[in-house]
Nucleic acid binder design. Sequence first.
DNA 1: ATCTTATATTTGTATGTACAAATATTGTTT
DNA 2: AAACAATATTTGTACATACAAATATAAGAT
Lengths: 159, 159
Amino acid sequence: MYVQILFIQMKIEELLKTNNDMPDSKKLVLNIIVTANFISEKLTEVLKPFSISSQQFNVLRILRGQKNKPANLSTIQERMVSKMSNTTRLVDKLVEKNLCERIVCPSNRRKIEIRITSKGLELLKKLDPLIEEIENNIAGKINKKEILSLNTKLNELRS
Amino acid sequence: MYVQILFIQMKIEELLKTNNDMPDSKKLVLNIIVTANFISEKLTEVLKPFSISSQQFNVLRILRGQKNKPANLSTIQERMVSKMSNTTRLVDKLVEKNLCERIVCPSNRRKIEIRITSKGLELLKKLDPLIEEIENNIAGKINKKEILSLNTKLNELRS
DNA sequence: ATCTTATATTTGTATGTACAAATATTGTTT
DNA sequence: AAACAATATTTGTACATACAAATATAAGAT
């Protein structure tokens, strides 16, 4: 006996239960937002047992990307996936958990230097494969060529 | 003299200033989130002068879609673009602004009936063309065929 | 009729987001 | 040097989001 796995692919109209037909441009805009929410939910779910929010995770990855060079707040802010206006309080949470440290920059006391701690690096090491799995699961639904073209078209939408 | 308009199309890697090369699956996931943020920002910007958040706008549109049939909280919740856990407080804000009204359902007092007011309908009438313009501007960056295929692929990613 | 379970909504708490204003420090001008 | 402008960060406020617990009502079981 074969086990038949049923993939239910919900179209965006079905998902939002709008019976009226929408123009495709509206459908596209909603679809992107709904898909982003879908992805964010998966990521949040994985991060939850580690008591870290996706924004906090984002900051940690940026800090690791600095390769021992400390980052200041504005650097972090401009590299964030979703620009947010309160990196101060986000870093506060990470410092509380000993995942990063903040030192007032000696040369320019307006700046602060933020570094990931070894505890932060360890956490990322544990999280990396879990995040990768989600990314592969999602992107794996379409083939390589389609991934590339999707990336290109999304870039175009933002141009 | 011709005026040359330069369209700068930022690839996702450039945008996030990550010099290291990412796997395409990771790029795709980030790209969707960044593009959704991009769109949300545009929408929020248009709604701002009307002192209404995009989630409040979302609720109003759902209420209008009910065509005089009142909605209860759970109906609104399941139709929201981004599921959120506090429709109560969202409706509170709309009631405060007289954009919708809530009445305890006479047949089942656990339920409440939420209706859009005429003031709410008027507001939506003003907002509709502005929102449509944004949607057309964004989707207009690619052609009709590409919009359709993008919609299909996004649906697939969520399957 | 009372007890239990299910349903619908509200409230509480912590965190995140957006924006403006406040503070601190440095650099520049007069 | 004092005044002013520029830069970097923090703080305040309102709103949004996520989740759990509390409340209220209705329907079914004993």
